[in-house]
């Protein structure tokens, strides 16, 4: 696979030219934060950022997705018959996402693309996506990707990895999809040995800058009922306001709700992100609720990520170490602290 070097201007020009074949998504600065948007004429991509506030999961798994449409008009020959809403699943390129967020997609994939069922919307959008990652020269203090099987320049789940070498990007193709995308870019040159070794140095320096580490290797061997019955959950949940911010920002939270909406006689079946933090999530029609207490919902979120998922897939924790939940939790609940509590129980 090829390694190419582009000047930063060349790279941005090239990305713009990709719009004829891809829906291109780039990070932009919006207020105090960055977010991914569709690249258009007026868009100013900004690849000089730490991470977006929201993860890019919505580019494959929108917050709200129209699944089916139907008519509730009894005179319509297709009355009450659901039909899949027509969508564009053409190629899309996500430029500049962080390696942790690519790792997040791989985690979510185990849920939406499994041997028994394939979620048609998630799978089609994911397969149509080319993920061009940007290594993290300056990881945040809340980044703990290297504790959960990733790293600031981790390649897994990416199609291309970019190294920021001050005035240039070194683009490393990692998959066929990645090579195809790079081949469509004008300019650039084959990376020299000097540039390759500079990229290695940047990578090594970044790995050393990850100061936040937590041991996730003990979780698999813990007894699930002992953890479930551990006394610390009530204390931990005391401050939680069940706002759901952690689930909303998380690149690996995948829970959803399905709702029907009807306007006059035209109906849609829609799925929306949902969260285990909300009591309605599990409320039975009878009024019974297996997770009626706040601490039960907090416990569910952490046990799902750090124990149930670990046991179910045998492939590490359901966390990419991006640190968003740590940064944005309004009451400072820290998943790394929860892991420590679980480790020492």
């Amino acid at each position: 696979m090829e390694n190419k070097v582009f000047s930063k201007d060349e790279w941005l020009e090239g990305i713009k030219a990709l719009q004829s074949e891809y829906k291109v998504f780039v990070p932009v600065k919006a207020g105090d934060f960055h977010k991914f948007v569709r690249l258009e004429e007026q868009t100013i991509p900004d690849l000089d950022y730490q991470n977006t506030r929201l993860s890019p999961k919505s580019l494959v798994y929108p917050e709200s997705e129209r699944m089916f449409e139907f008519s509730t008009d009894e005179n319509d020959p297709d009355y009450n018959i659901l039909k899949e809403a027509q969508k564009d699943f053409g190629p899309q390129a996500i430029i500049g996402l962080r390696p942790c967020d690519a790792h997040g997609f791989l985690i979510v994939k185990r849920n939406f693309d499994n041997p028994e069922y394939k979620d048609p919307w998630w799978v089609r959008r994911y397969e149509a996506s080319t993920l061009v990652g940007l290594g993290c020269n300056e990881p945040c203090g809340t980044c703990f990707c290297s504790s959960v099987g990733g790293g600031p320049f981790d390649e897994e789940g990416l199609d291309v990895l970019l190294f920021d070498l001050e005035d240039q990007y070194l683009a490393k193709a990692l998959t066929e999809k990645g090579s195809t995308l790079l081949a469509k870019l004008d300019g650039g040159s084959e990376a020299s040995d000097k540039e390759l070794s500079k990229a290695e140095e940047v990578k090594k320096a970044a790995q050393e800058k990850i100061s936040s580490k937590v041991d996730t290797s003990k979780l698999a061997d813990k007894d699930v009922l002992e953890l479930f019955n551990a006394p610390f959950w009530e204390d931990l949940a005391f401050a939680c306001i069940n706002c759901g911010t952690c689930t909303f920002l998380c690149p690996t939270c995948w829970c959803f709700d399905i709702q029907d909406e009807v306007y006059q006689k035209i109906g849609d079946r829609i799925r929306n992100w949902d969260a285990c933090m909300f009591p309605l999530f599990t409320l039975h029609g009878s009024g019974h609720n297996p997770r009626s207490e706040k601490f039960q919902r907090v416990r569910q979120r952490f046990m799902h990520k750090l124990k149930y998922y670990v046991d179910k897939y045998g492939n590490g924790v359901q966390c990419s170490g991006c640190g968003r939940c740590v940064q944005f939790c309004p009451v400072n609940i820290d998943i790394r602290h929860v892991i420590e509590l679980m480790n020492s129980h």
Partner: peptide, 24 residues
């Protein structure tokens, strides 16, 4: 068992008991 469900195929996340989905 009974549980509140939506997807019925083990994806939407609400009917779990530990690592088991009641629906699937």
């Amino acid at each position: 068992l009974e549980m509140r469900m939506k997807c019925g195929i083990g994806m939407c996340g609400r009917c779990n008991i530990g690592d088991q989905y009641v629906c699937k």
